[in-house]
């Protein structure tokens, strides 16, 4: 899909190795393919606003960063609830489409690859209701 994944927690790289070798490699053939980064002390997490000083850990923050190094979107969840990887892919594909069309196309609510995009411009003002129906927001 053309994106590099970086994971980060306050664990040391030695613990990352143990977790990968002893558990994750049993879930994923060959182990984790992407870099598992260590943020001891939560310094990076603090800058990104996901480090919880009281708990000493980082929330499930996920940041989509574009090729210019700009944050296009993020999501932050408390620890007990896992992410939706498909939604992350969908957003990534949407941001990629917007970038490839240099903003000539935008993705309305519920968009996913293959669905209709909108072409923002003077002609579309007040006319979205004609070209886009609310049912399209749902699967």
């Amino acid at each position: 899909m053309g994106a590099e994944v970086l994971s980060m927690s306050i664990d040391s790289m030695f613990v990352h190795k143990m977790w990968n070798d002893n558990e994750l490699s049993k879930m994923v053939d060959g182990g984790v393919p992407f870099p598992m980064l260590s943020d001891a002390g939560g310094k990076v997490g603090t800058v990104y606003g996901v480090y919880d000083e009281n708990a000493g850990v980082e929330a499930r923050g996920r940041f989509i960063i574009d090729p210019d190094g700009v944050v296009q979107g993020y999501e932050v969840l408390t620890p007990p609830v896992g992410r939706n990887v498909n939604e992350t892919f969908r957003q990534l594909q949407a941001f990629q489409l917007v970038r490839e069309t240099a903003g000539k196309e935008a993705t309305p609510s519920g968009w996913k690859p293959g669905k209709q995009t909108l072409k923002p411009g003077p002609d579309l003002v007040g006319k979205v209701w004609e070209v886009w129906k609310t049912e399209q927001a749902f699967d």
Binding site: A3, V5, M8, M18, F63, I64, I65, P67, Q96
Partner: peptide, 13 residues
């Protein structure tokens, strides 16, 4: 830079 990046934080190994 030049690539799309997904940066994912999580509570712990």
């Amino acid at each position: 830079l030049g690539k799309w990046v997904l940066l994912c934080f999580y509570p712990g190994d």
